[in-house]
Design a protein around this nucleic acid. Structure first.
Lengths: 183, 183
DNA sequence: AAAATCATGTAATTTGTTACATGATTAG
DNA sequence: CTAATCATGTAACAAATTACATGATTTT
């Protein structure tokens, strides 16, 4: 049931269409939640049926019309209640690390390449997040309450990301010591 | 398909029963993968059917018999190949952070309590992992190749965990500045 | 003309969770 | 005698992924 609440959370400040959601979702909450557009569209329908969301069609010039969703009072209430539910998932699933348990002379260079690729993705993402932090969240104590929460999410992502970069460097260094038989 | 490979990875060195797997899994690879016993039993059956695993019943005195699974040659080969597949999921799903986006005067103390609880779980886990690192992985350069990979997984977990603890401290501090109306 | 982006969806399949079920043994 | 641990499973349901589908517009 958590995707529903993640979506509603994304709609607290702005009304968004499914397309916009699936685009922005990844950019803003991507560190903590991922969902495909198919999932998002289906969840939006369900939430609208429960009348946690309302929707209206917006015509756009030059682009197809979009269906924009917004939180209803009932949706806001449900979201506020949900915060008190017991939290379950700190759902860790990282294939790459499992692959590392299988490190060998043969696959070392492949794994190094995979780590390097992910390292670069992370650099990209961190750059965006860091800009955001500097611009809007430089004095966390002075922020309004809810923004403090958003700030904490932001630095959670940044911290995780920086830690990941440091780990990548160490990993690449150690893997380099594995006598790589070129395959 | 990744659970299958996580299970096979856990069986590289030791033959284990489903029960042992679901117990040890959490302890060793829990940072990177979680699976319930129901899932594990089902996956074991599937893997045995594909003959990636073999199994034998072991009688135990005083305890019910257990069915112990081991990797076959075919299983080892499939695992080795899988390492070259493109990696997808760095499946991040963290409800607690999503909840933080909903921080308010009212729920601040609840969220602080949740963070504190998770902080303590992590301390516990880190303690175990740190002992392991000191005992067996103090000189990573000298390890045999595969152990280097295991070491990298280990320090990935440790690094993540330590970063999490630091974040918890910062989060608790900031949330404390939210004027908590007692609810 | 082809490729990319905008925009929304359905269907089939695979994964994962929750609930239920059984039965023995050991520790308090 | 009660709870906990050992040990293995089935069934129903929810969530997520993959594949397929459509059609307009904008950029190369």
């Amino acid at each position: 049931m958590a995707l529903a609440h993640a979506i509603m959370t994304a709609l607290i400040d702005d009304d968004l269409s499914g397309y916009e959601l699936s685009r922005d979702f990844e950019a803003s909450m991507g560190f903590f939640w991922h969902a495909s557009h198919q999932q998002i569209y289906q969840e939006l329908h369900k939430l609208a049926e429960k009348s946690f969301l309302n929707n209206r069609e917006v015509s756009q010039s030059g682009k197809p019309n979009k269906i924009v969703y917004g939180l209803t009072k009932a949706g806001r209430d449900a979201l506020a209640e949900w915060v008190y539910d017991t939290t379950k998932n700190q759902n860790a699933k990282d294939e790459l690390v499992i692959k590392l348990y299988n490190l060998s002379e043969e696959n070392a260079s492949h794994l190094a390449a995979e780590i390097d690729a992910r390292r670069q993705d992370m650099m990209q993402r961190l750059y965006t997040f860091e800009k955001l932090r500097v611009k809007h969240y430089n004095e966390p104590q002075l922020l309004p309450t809810r923004s403090k929460g958003v700030y904490l999410a932001l630095i959670r992502g940044l911290g995780q990301g920086q830690q990941f970069l440091a780990w990548c460097d160490e990993a690449l260094e150690l893997i380099a010591t594995v006598s790589g038989k070129s395959k």
